[in-house]
Design a binder for these strands. Structure first.
Length: 207
DNA sequence: TAAAAGATCCCCT
DNA sequence: GGGGATCTTTTAT
């Protein structure tokens, strides 16, 4: 997918549909690696998903949904194919794709992207405050990618399955070397290998 | 009612 | 390698 193809909106015909998301997060997560996150809201911004983690409803000790629906995690228990956005540590936003049938509480955390289009805008957003940011650091973490894209609480609940605004599409690319590990930054459920990433990719947050 | 932890990032030593 | 920023949710008195 080239920059020209992005502005031509050629990706719009390949937006992932609700059926893709209506499965357990552990099934959806590895398949989301390699897909494109697109924000068509002015200058198109796009990034290839290179790192994700699955969080699986009330049986997962590390999931926000582990104790049932609350005001914060309501979107997680809503229909699949929507975006769950939450504030972590009081200052960073994290974005997840909601999976499985409504009421389940499954979601896939987007942990890292490889910028494909709109990197100038990303650099400006990530560098707000006067610091310079390397290309490989633009989206190399869950809160970095939301800052680069300008995703915040106002995007909680956004529909990912229609073109325009935020969506995820399949441009046919798939990783040659998909790797798996335990999830990062959690203290419970560390035995579960529910993180998937492209081994060797410079934008992944950890090897 | 209070305290601590949390799916993080950045700057300092 | 360690701590601070900053606030919501959860768990403990």
């Amino acid at each position: 997918m080239t920059a020209q193809q992005l502005t031509d909106r050629r990706w719009a015909a390949r937006v992932l549909q609700p059926e893709f998301y209506e499965r357990p997060a552990t099934e959806v997560a590895p398949e989301l690696v390699g897909k494109l996150l697109v924000l068509d809201d002015g200058p198109v911004r796009a990034g290839r998903i290179v790192e994700v983690e699955a969080y699986c409803g009330e049986g997962d000790p590390a999931a926000h949904s582990r104790s049932g629906p609350t005001a914060r995690n309501a979107t997680m228990f809503g229909p699949a194919g929507h975006l769950y956005v939450y504030l972590i540590y009081g200052l960073h936003w994290c974005a997840n794709a909601v999976c499985a049938p409504a009421g389940t509480g499954d979601a896939v955390l987007l942990r890292a992207l490889e910028p494909v289009g709109g990197s100038e805008v990303m650099t400006a957003r990530r560098g707000a405050g006067g610091r310079s940011v390397e290309f490989s650091e633009l989206c190399s973490g869950p809160a970095k990618l939301t800052q680069a894209f300008g995703i915040d609480g106002s995007h909680d609940g956004a529909d990912l399955t229609t073109a325009g605004g935020l969506s995820i599409c399949d441009d046919g690319w798939s990783p040659a070397n998909l790797a798996q590990s335990s999830r990062i930054g959690i203290s419970r459920g560390t035995d579960l290998l529910w993180r998937w990433y492209v081994a060797g990719n410079a934008h992944v947050s950890a090897p």
